[in-house]
Design a protein around this nucleic acid. Structure first.
Lengths: 156, 156
DNA sequence: CTGTTATCGTTGGGGCATCCAACGGTTCGC
DNA sequence: GCGAACCGTTGGATGCCCCAACGATAACAG
């Protein structure tokens, strides 16, 4: 074998390290894929959340995908500028904005979902479907330690 | 609050998403643990690499842990300022700096390794040792897909 | 009704990790 | 020798996360 600059074994043996590397690769693959549609990860996540939850307030959206309200403002601004979502004042609560996906947003979402799935397939290309399921199950338990009932506000 | 802000199923079902969440938690736990010694993740990783590889150039270090040369400069600066490593010009190649761990570096490394291990134990507290090994094996295959040729080029 | 408390959207700032482009100094291949 | 490649270094850009504050609005207690 050539003298590859191997990562030190000590570090490599740490779950957090491997987790970070794998996540970095996943992030890169997905980001590259979504870039084909001019989308970014958070934007896609938010758009998907809007499409799934229906008309929602920004605060609720932020809690659902776990991002800061500050960043949510920018994301919704972009999505609205691209005509992917509509932001209308909620008549029943004038503090809120009702975010809803548009027809164009639905179309874009369908494309970006395909791209995201494809990137994730590439990410897990070395795994069998069963192994992928296994990985997902293990990751879920590592990402959310408590998670017994799961009805609670899973805030991080 | 009946409405739980659960993450949309669409997004949650993606390995890249779960990977990111799990990595974020791991990162946070390890960072908090290392902060007890005033250390940060990259610093610890580099220090560990130096201790394992012996006298080594910064470029080689950067390749081994997969970080940018720019950031490596800052890391080595900090480590040197804390007296944890020595940076001496390589007489055989005056472009290179020979980075070597110091006695104080060894001591600090032993402590931070304990802290890192402890944080990783907490991270994987919900898993049995066998499951943890399983997770590591799966992650390794996801993080480094090719792995056969041991191709150079650092990363992507 | 009035005053207090809480939420919502928004703006501002900071910290941390990753990445790319460039440059002078040095070594290596031809 | 001379161009190509590498090394350390500097500069800048980006993305993600967290905290604090503000005006407007709503919910609630009195």
């Amino acid at each position: 074998m050539a003298e590859t600059p191997y990562a030190p074994a000590r570090i490599r043996a740490l779950p957090s390290w491997l987790l970070g590397r794998a996540a970095a690769r996943g992030h890169r693959l997905v980001a590259e894929a979504l870039a084909e549609e001019g989308m970014r990860m958070m934007h896609h996540a938010v758009l998907s959340a809007v499409g799934e939850l229906g008309p929602v307030s920004q605060a609720e959206l932020g809690r659902s995908v776990g991002i800061d309200p500050k960043d949510m403002v920018a994301v919704v601004n972009d999505l609205q500028a691209d005509g992917l979502v509509t932001r209308t004042p909620d008549p029943r609560d004038r503090r809120k904005n009702a975010i809803e996906i548009s027809a164009a947003g639905e179309r874009t979402l369908r494309r970006t979902e395909k791209l995201g799935d494809r990137a994730n397939d590439e990410l897990t290309a070395g795994l069998t479907p069963a192994e992928r399921e296994q990985l997902m199950a293990l990751l879920a338990r590592v990402a959310e330690p408590g998670e017994a009932g799961a009805e609670q506000t899973g805030r991080e």
